[in-house]
């Protein structure tokens, strides 16, 4: 069994969950402070990938990143970087699709954060950066953690948009999900089943880890 799809899926999921972790927190922090109207609009835009079919996300990504499109073409001409049909194309797809999970859970956490703690910090002359990293973040770590785990799990399972912008090249762009689909289509049920089990195993481990973390939190 060629393990490439596992390695590729894991690196795509890890890179995109790190990206989404920071951008999601950043967006959640600033959107929460905005004027209600702007906030409402931005909130819809940032959450859309959660409800749109992945094929629609894939379409938008192709229009943006394709080598014949303005941005994708510019990247290719200026830097020689091809944005589609490479292993890292999967990162774009996974990040966009996983972003709303991080963003929404983080925003929920920030909104339920007791602001008097921040005010108390301000009266002590602490900087906003200090308050954010040392008071707000630890207070919200449950929500942040839940968001990060969900984002990772979603990124690992991304199929639709990935298959559209990364395609299926064995040993290059193949991920677990695209491999399962390919094997199923070509009547290789036995191998498809093994990959399904690998995927179930990873997802179970991720969820167990969340439960363990939660239990440890309870003991504190």
């Amino acid at each position: 069994m060629d393990w490439y799809p596992l390695w590729n899926s894991l690196r795509i999921a890890m890179v995109s969950s790190v990206l989404v972790f920071f951008t999601g927190i950043f967006a959640a922090y600033y959107v929460a402070k905005l004027h209600p109207v702007v906030k409402g609009v931005l909130d819809v835009v940032l959450t859309l990938p959660l409800v749109l079919p992945p094929t629609v996300v894939g379409y938008f990504l192709l229009v943006f990143l394709g080598p014949r499109r303005p941005f994708g073409g510019w990247m290719l001409d200026a830097f020689g970087i091809k944005m589609v049909m490479t292993w890292y194309s999967g990162i774009f797809a996974a990040s966009v699709v996983a972003f709303p999970l991080m963003y929404r859970t983080a925003r929920g956490a920030f909104e339920s954060f007791d602001k008097t703690l921040a005010y108390a910090g301000q009266t002590l002359g602490l900087s906003n950066t200090y308050i954010f990293w040392r008071i707000q973040m630890p207070a919200c770590r449950q929500g942040i953690l839940a968001g990060a785990v969900l984002a990772f799990a979603r990124a690992l399972g991304e199929y639709g948009a990935t298959s559209m912008i990364a395609g299926y090249t064995p040993g290059r762009t193949a991920t677990i999900s695209t491999t399962v689909y390919q094997l199923w289509r070509t009547d290789n049920d036995a191998l498809a089943f093994r990959w399904v089990m690998v995927n179930v195993l990873i997802s179970t481990i991720v969820l167990l880890a969340v439960n363990l973390l939660e239990r440890r939190e309870r003991r504190r």
């Binding site: 192709l62 394709g66 014949r68 049909m85 395609g167 090249t169 064995p170 040993g171 290059r172 289509r185």
Partner: peptide, 20 residues
């Protein structure tokens, strides 16, 4: 690793048309 597989002929056509 120079082959990408599409699930029907239109998908393959689009991949060429988009220069993917």
């Amino acid at each position: 690793g120079k082959i990408t597989y599409g699930s029907n002929v239109k998908e393959v056509t689009t991949q060429v048309a988009e220069a993917s």
